[in-house]
Write a protein that binds this DNA or RNA. Sequence first.
DNA 1: CGTTATGCTTACGTTCACGTCAAGCAATCT
DNA 2: AGATTGCTTGACGTGAACGTAAGCATAACG
Lengths: 134, 134
Amino acid sequence: MTQDLMTIREMCDAFDVTPRTLRFYEAKELIFPVREGTRRLFTRTDRARLKLILRGKRFGFSLEQIRQLLDLYDRNNRNIPQVTKAIELGRERLDDMERQRDELEIAIKGLREQLSWGEEHLQTLINETAKAAE
Amino acid sequence: MTQDLMTIREMCDAFDVTPRTLRFYEAKELIFPVREGTRRLFTRTDRARLKLILRGKRFGFSLEQIRQLLDLYDRNNRNIPQVTKAIELGRERLDDMERQRDELEIAIKGLREQLSWGEEHLQTLINETAKAAE
DNA sequence: CGTTATGCTTACGTTCACGTCAAGCAATCT
DNA sequence: AGATTGCTTGACGTGAACGTAAGCATAACG
């Protein structure tokens, strides 16, 4: 059962990260596990944030960029300038991501072409070798 | 005029990188400028490779991953096992990139939703403030 | 009740991708 | 000739994102 609170080990197993990583993210204020005595217990909020963190990392964003993005996902924020800024940053990130997607599309096409050229080239080499062996 | 050979400074201006970066990439065997005495001169091949390097970096690939990919773009390679391996690696990268594109698409959607929620939320906060000021 | 596992803090180490001097050579301007 | 400019090779420094090891507390197991 997916309990509401998870230990650090459960988190590590669930998300395939190390304890060090989770403590590091807490130090950087990306997640906020509660304490039971000295131990950390991670909430569903932490899990949602961690999911977004790992996703962001795969797009090459820095932890600091991700942290700012996460603020946008905090629906308890009633500070107008802060929310305004979060939205602004969110728009920038969105632009980044759309640009990246477009570039990625181009790069995929290029790589596909290069691959089919490479396969053809390889076949040519193999044929040459076979002919030379007769 | 775009000469065939460019100095390090011309390269830096053209690609918005530092000399250190170009020397570093040469040391890592990502580019192979020729020498005029002691000075580096960059060919169109170096420029093509640099373009691919900078693109790869934007997708979060490491320089080592990029180096392997660049080998695939070397059409002078007549070594069958090497070409075979390059194609293999290229296929893996292609898969990575397609996965990343799909994930990116999802993330963009999520961020868009979060942004429109945020904008709505912000408007609510502003309205509340206006009402409280009466 | 001792051992094994899990967790904590503190702190130094590591990898990647460069940045930042220092010191020296070579061509060019004055 | 002397100074400036551009490029070179070391070599040490840096920030991000953790890894790793030491030393201690607590908790679960047999």
